[in-house]
Design a protein around this nucleic acid. Structure first.
Length: 589
RNA sequence: UCCAGAGUAGCUCAGUGGUAGAGCGGUCGGCUGUUAACCGAUUGGUCGUAGGUUCGAAUCCUACCUCUGGAGCCA
């Protein structure tokens, strides 16, 4: 018996043999019954005719039209098309399907039916003029004509017979100078271009007659894609980062933030490159997690419970056993525990993703949503761990130094004059490694007057860390072997019974950038640690299993992505290295 | 959360009890292969909000809001 299959929308509309129209990103029309009811009767066109909307990029107008499809073997071919549509396509127009033509559009279309002409269009449509990035144009070795560039107007200046337009498309820091002569048909409109407007420029890339840039484009055509007006908040002059934070949706259009986010992208790439080159496996640890075991700070609860009518336990507390996951769940504060599981299988792994802390922290170094890199390595002790931490910090600096030189120069000029010298210094010199005990001794002997006293057994204060990195050693310092009392349960107990194999990498200006440890691999010791931290080992059965079956010494650390980015760029506020920062009382955009 | 500081034009700021200002931006005009262009004119305000003191408050007092810096928590 023949299998009966429901017809797809497309088949229903165009017949079972209708070709798929994929050759130039056309989606077949989908029309549902509900859309029909809402929008009225459908366009009465033959089944093999596909209504389309054509956008003419030259004029910015949308054209209604339709294309006739040649069925069967030569599928994916548009054979007939309205002349006006063909013209639009030749000029580099975009084609989209007209999702639900109504009777009204039908009438307009029917009037044009007679205009339908045959067009030699196979799957090769006239290519859209390729857009050259500003970066590529500026780096060109020879004149280019014709050339098309697209971007946003940074500023415009008038000269006697023409206008200078500074065009930026974010591909690099620098702008491309456009010469807009007064012979352009829309010169009057061009003269009203204001900072923020978007344009498409077609013309010729030629050697610049002026100083300050080697290339410029003499425009044959300037298409105003999107105008701007005098309410556009960005000026060509400098703005404070505080003001730009309030317009986070526009700030990437500024020099500073464009540079920051280009570097952010490159830094993320370099992180993957570092680990992939070394045989690490990238693990996606869960973002919604049930483990609240790290003591890494306050958690954001994830719940589907109706806040107006939550299920209650007999004692009146909300019963999260009736919640979506049948338990309490939170946004992750760390993927470490899960990464450990994968390290104990794939040997070397890393995570790189968002983490969340519900701390009410109001500092330039804390955000409630941030990205963290967490490598985890089997058969690796604390020393190996410190080696990798130091290596990656240096690797990332070197990579950014090499690939984002222009952006770094901007930071060195306007954000932090000593940036480049510091980066080079960190890259070249070994990090200072001292135990916590030695650090306390250095601090006690320093003679420095600290607001908070230095005492063995207490956490190092920001001012202490700063003294070590900025005043004493003047380089990154790795402090290790901390008292067990001030560190989490999973860190390996040293033979002295007093300290654990923790390590923090402190860098000048930022403070802690890496925090890690060798993990406790001995089942009994780990259970004892848990009890000491008032945790019930029964709640962490899966984590303890890693020690129960084939346990290995292993180590890992967390590297704060944004902190690294701050260090590399010299930007002093974490809110300025996150596209849309989440901080207490602030989650706009 | 705690401790400081700040909120005046679109932006950066001056104005400390007596008629709300400057520079930049925008607009108009001039000049000009300019480049944070230049010259002239012009536009632009609920002085964070709400109370209070005073003949009179941007200015003094109180509360609140927002932002910034620092601390704690950490990455």
């Amino acid at each position: 018996m023949r299998e009966k299959r429901a017809l797809t929308d497309r088949e229903r509309r165009f017949g079972p043999d209708a070709p798929k129209v994929r050759s130039f990103s056309l989606d077949p029309i989908r029309v549902t019954d509900s859309q029909l009811r809402k929008r009225g009767p459908l366009l009465p066109v033959p089944v093999h005719v596909l209504p389309l909307i054509f956008a003419n990029r030259a004029t910015g107008r949308w054209l209604l039209g339709f294309a006739e499809l040649r069925a069967a073997r030569d599928a994916n071919v548009v054979t007939h098309i309205l002349p006006s549509v063909a013209a639009a396509l030749r000029a580099g127009g975009v084609v989209r399907s007209c999702p639900h033509p109504t009777l009204r559009t039908a009438k307009r279309l029917q009037k044009r039916t007679e205009e339908l002409v045959e067009l030699q269009l196979t799957s090769k449509l006239p290519p859209m003029p390729a857009t050259t990035s500003v970066k590529a144009a500026l780096q060109s070795a020879a004149p280019i004509a014709p050339i098309q560039v697209q971007g946003w107007v940074r500023t415009r200046r008038d000269s006697k017979d023409f206008s200078f337009i500074e065009l930026n498309d974010g591909s690099c820091l620098r702008n491309l100078q456009i010469i807009a002569k007064n012979t352009l048909p829309n010169y009057a409109a061009v003269q009203h271009l204001i900072t923020g407007a978007s344009i498409t420029v077609r013309g010729a890339l030629v050697a610049s007659q002026g100083k300050g840039q080697s290339w410029e484009i003499v425009a044959d055509e300037i298409e105003i894609v999107g105008a701007s007006d005098d309410t556009y908040p960005l000026q060509k002059k400098g703005h404070t980062p505080e003001f730009l934070r309030e317009i986070a949706h526009l700030r990437p259009r500024s020099n500073l933030f464009g540079a920051v986010f280009r570097v952010r992208s490159r830094l993320a790439f370099a992180i993957h490159q570092f680990f992939q080159e070394r045989g690490f496996v990238y693990v996606h640890t869960p973002i919604i997690t049930g483990s609240d075991c790290e003591g890494a700070g306050e958690l954001f609860r994830v719940t589907a419970i109706d806040p107006k009518n939550p299920p209650r336990r007999p004692d009146g507390a909300i019963d999260y056993a009736q919640d979506f996951f049948a338990r309490s769940t939170f946004l992750t504060v760390s993927g470490q525990l899960e990464a450990e599981a994968f390290a104990c299988a794939l040997s070397k792994v890393y995570t790189f993703g968002p983490t969340f802390r519900a701390e009410n922290s109001n500092t330039s170094r804390h955000a409630n949503e941030f990205w963290m890199i967490e490598p985890e390595m089997a058969f690796t002790d604390l020393r190996g761990n410190m080696d990798v931490a130091e290596e990656i910090v240096k690797y990332l600096i070197r990579d950014i130094r090499q690939h984002c030189a222009e952006d770094l120069e901007l930071f060195a000029k306007f954000v932090d004059k000593e940036l480049l010298a510091r980066l080079d210094f960190v890259m070249e010199r070994p990090f200072q490694r001292i135990t916590y005990t030695e650090a306390v001794e250095f601090l006690t002997k320093s003679g420095e007057k600290f607001e908070f006293p230095v005492a063995y057994g207490a956490n190092l204060q920001s001012e202490h860390e700063r003294w070590l990195t900025e005043k004493h050693f003047k380089c990154p310092v790795t402090v290790f072997d901390y008292p067990k009392e001030i560190k989490p349960f999973y860190m390996r107990l040293n033979d002295d019974g007093k300290t654990v194999t923790a390590m923090d990498v402190l860098v000048p200006g930022i403070g802690e950038i890496v925090g890690g440890s060798q993990r406790e691999e001995r089942l009994e010791v780990l259970e004892e640690n848990m009890r000491r931290h008032k945790m019930d080992p029964a709640d962490y059965k899966w984590y303890l299993d890693l020690r129960r079956y084939g346990t290995v010494p292993h180590s890992g650390f967390g590297l704060g992505f944004e902190r690294m980015l701050m260090f590399v760029t010299g930007v002093s506020n974490i809110r300025d290295v996150i596209p849309f920062a989440r901080t207490p009382g602030s989650a706009e955009f």
